[in-house]
Amino acid sequence: MLKQLWIALTNRGVVGTSDTLTPGNLNMTGKPVIADPCCNGCGACVAACPAVALRMSQKSGSEKAPAVLQIAHGRCIGCARCIQACEPKCLAFRPGTDTWYVGGDDEWQPLNAREGK
């Protein structure tokens, strides 16, 4: 829990923005987002996830397109180990209480698909 707090604090909300954490959003819960599009497809986050909530998908069609990191929101527990494991530091932990989703299906989605919903 303290580690997650440290990650959330040092990342100042979302990397690359001027979000600061206030007591209103200082919450242990949230989801990972891609803040910096420098994913090299190393898969360290996939291996680090204890809930098997991340995967690398090659369904882009052509070989030129990089593998897309996908998340199953119904499996993510908000532990932020993927953010710790990310080497190019492209993942950030976005604290928030809006992790709910309508319906029961948690199909694999790209990481930033639910931003601004």
């Binding site: 809930a51 992790t99 989703y101 029961g104």
Partner: peptide, 12 residues
Amino acid sequence: ISIPGCPPSPDE
């Protein structure tokens, strides 16, 4: 509605 989290906080 599904609320993921382990456990989800009361805020969520």
